[in-house]
């Protein structure tokens, strides 16, 4: 069979992609999707994921451009390379979707998540929770004589680590926003 001389790399204009066809290990990808902020748009995106059996590890959505009525949906998903490629193609062809960026392959990006932790502790454990919060640069946003509520911003891994430490100290409740992500540098 004759080998074709094809240029490597992903072009947004071409469907040709030189991914390894034999690689079927799941990968974690962060997608940023810019959509018209119209009624039902989130249901469309989520419906695509559930209808076609794709995973959602984390999802955040909010309007980011009030004049242009645009929302940014950040989805962390996992799947084999071919599934990830399908997800992007399926999202891109939806009518209210302006743009789909795969932050995992399009260069470096920053990912942040915000979380609130409610910790009930007494005595030494209460002091230790404050100390650890200081190490993680978490803020105390509410306190009673029996509890602290901490606010922490960071990567999902950092939030996981903080939560793990707080469990033995009396972590009772946790609220996470899901990942917000942007590409690094001046490009978009």
């Amino acid at each position: 069979m004759q080998k074709l001389s094809l240029k490597k790399g992903v072009s947004r204009k071409s469907a040709y992609n030189l991914r390894d066809p034999k690689n079927d290990k799941p990968e974690r990808h962060t997608l940023a999707i810019l959509v018209d902020n119209e009624s039902g748009v989130l249901a469309r995106v989520i419906g695509l994921f559930s209808g076609r059996g794709y995973n959602i590890d984390s999802l955040t959505v909010a309007e980011v451009d009030h004049t242009g009525n645009l929302s940014r949906i950040t989805i962390v998903t996992s799947g084999t390379p071919s599934v990830i490629e399908q997800i992007k193609a399926q999202l891109s062809r939806m009518i209210p979707v302006h743009d789909v960026h795969d932050l995992t392959v399009e260069g470096k990006s920053v990912e942040r998540e915000l979380a609130l932790f409610k910790v009930f502790a007494k005595g030494e454990k209460r002091v230790e929770s404050l100390r650890l919060a200081d190490v993680f640069r978490a803020k105390v946003v509410d306190s009673t004589l029996a509890s602290f509520t901490f606010e922490l911003t960071g990567t999902p891994e950092k939030i996981d680590a903080f939560a793990d430490l707080m469990v033995p100290l009396g972590l009772k409740e946790i609220a996470r926003t899901g990942v917000a992500a942007l590409a690094r540098g001046g490009g978009n």
Partner: peptide, 15 residues
């Protein structure tokens, strides 16, 4: 574009 490489991986996919 979502029809390309969905079921069968192709060598050259043209949109």
């Amino acid at each position: 574009p979502s029809s390309i490489n969905k079921n069968i991986l192709v060598d050259i996919g043209i949109i």
